[in-house]
Amino acid sequence: MHMRDILIVDDSRAMRNFLRRALSMTSLEIGVVHEAENGLEALNLLDNQSVEVIFSDINMPVMDGAVFVGELAKNEVKRKIPVIVVSTDSSMERKNQMQSLGAKGYIAKPFSPEQLEQEVVRLLWEASDDDE
């Protein structure tokens, strides 16, 4: 059983709780769920913790999601972790922006646990293809 450690980056405690709960409602084998309130806190956490998937909000204080994803891309190790953006903003402009910065997935709110699972499976499948 491959348990996958996850990082949730969102300044909303309510949203972090909801994501954690939604993940538990999927068939994904989730290990440790780390949390950070902003991009800077997430970067610092990743210096000491290894995760397989990152879920990130965009609008956050201190360091927003766009800057966070950009900072991840500068690091050889961290850039390999797939980032799924979770946001109410599903405009093409925003999706293109986050993709160009390095985000691999995008989930627009509202979303169901099934949609969450589909996106994670797709990303992890693509990541395993890249490793071969």
Partner: peptide, 19 residues
Amino acid sequence: ELTNMLAGSTLSAYVPEHF
């Protein structure tokens, strides 16, 4: 959080090209 989602979802659907 509900208000944030309602506003964001509405704007994304109303003006899908721009944020």
